[in-house]
Amino acid sequence: MKKLINDPVDFVPESVEGFVAAHGDLVAFHADPLYIVRADAPVSGKVGIVSGGGSGHEPLHGGYVGIGMLDAAVPGAVFTSPTPDPILAATKVVDGGAGVLHIVKNYTGDVLNFETAADLAAADGIEVRAVVTNDDVAVKDSLYTAGRRGVGGTVLVEKIAGAKAEAGGSLDEVAGIAEKVNDNVRSMGLALTPCINPNDGQPSFTLAEDEVEVGIGIHGEPGRERIKIESADSLVDRLIGPIIEDLPFVSGDRVLLFVNGMGGTPLSELYVVYRHAAKVLADHGIAVERSLVGNFITAIDMQGASITVLKLDDELTALWDAPVQTPALRWGR
């Protein structure tokens, strides 16, 4: 294992410390318990939004803390849910009197720990709602979940719910728009290589040089099938086909197409993926009206990609276009 780390025990706190030092105009952090918070929190009268989960998926979630998106993010150890204590602390610090929304990826540890934190916050008089993302069409259950996993769609939920909260939406309205995004978004990914967790220096699984894992999870958990390497277009077909069929997406739909890198994939390759995914959608009469390409929800250093498609309407499009100023997403200001 070759990584730019000191002691693996210090990897996450040192990474967070450097992240906040680089983006101190937007975010701050609390070291014990560990969480990242927007610099002006709490915002009086605004619904606070908290998300989080195991580290290793950067820029998710800390990169999305700021104006128009998250109010706080709670990082756990690599691929390990944060405990209820930092989630509760983050919930309290962003409470501006209008309630707090938890956005939680559907992994067992995350769901249980956010539920516990929400119960504790309620006991302190804070109204908390939770939306659990589950956009992955690859598998129904996995090593980490009961039901579908929360993957790339989580980024879109955080952006659009964040815009609704920034515009003054009530807790019911912000939770409702988050649910609407989750109901209308689907994702699937693949891996060309495993990722290596810095805690133990071991690959998360093994793949032969000529193999691809289709339907991979963001922690390196297995997918639908292991196949021999194919052309980029053929691999995209294996992802975009199940996505279109699942909702289903139909001719006349307007969509946002999000092609995400898993951490070790060059941007040039992601644009090869985007090129064919957009063509397949066009061939189905589906209009791509918004796009996002890059490393936005990763699995450390895994080589691979995921495709996410969100069905748009005027409301979702306007909220996607709304100004955002975070370390990882910035436009409109």
Rank of each mutant, 00 (worst) to 15 (best):
L190Q: 02
D313K: 04
V139E: 15
V94D: 01
L329W: 12
V16T: 13
V43S: 11
H30T: 14
R224P: 06
L207K: 01
G63H: 05
R224C: 15
S15Q: 13
G53E: 01
D233H: 14
P266Q: 09
I103F: 03
F114M: 02
V43E: 15
T91Y: 01
R186I: 08
G168N: 09
A98G: 04
T193F: 04
V309C: 10
M69W: 04
A322H: 11
M262N: 11
G241W: 08
L257R: 03
Y35N: 04
V212L: 02
A282F: 08
D95I: 01
G52F: 05
L26M: 14
G76T: 08
K2E: 09
I67N: 09
R226K: 15
Y35W: 01
D200R: 09
A178T: 07
L156N: 09
G162H: 06
A328S: 13
L281T: 04
A72I: 08
A178F: 11
A28R: 14
G252C: 00
R38H: 03
M302T: 10
V137S: 04
V259L: 00
R149P: 08
E230W: 12
G76L: 05
S15C: 09
F296L: 14
L34W: 04
K3W: 13
W320A: 05
P266S: 03
A167I: 06
V131M: 04
A31V: 09
I177Y: 07
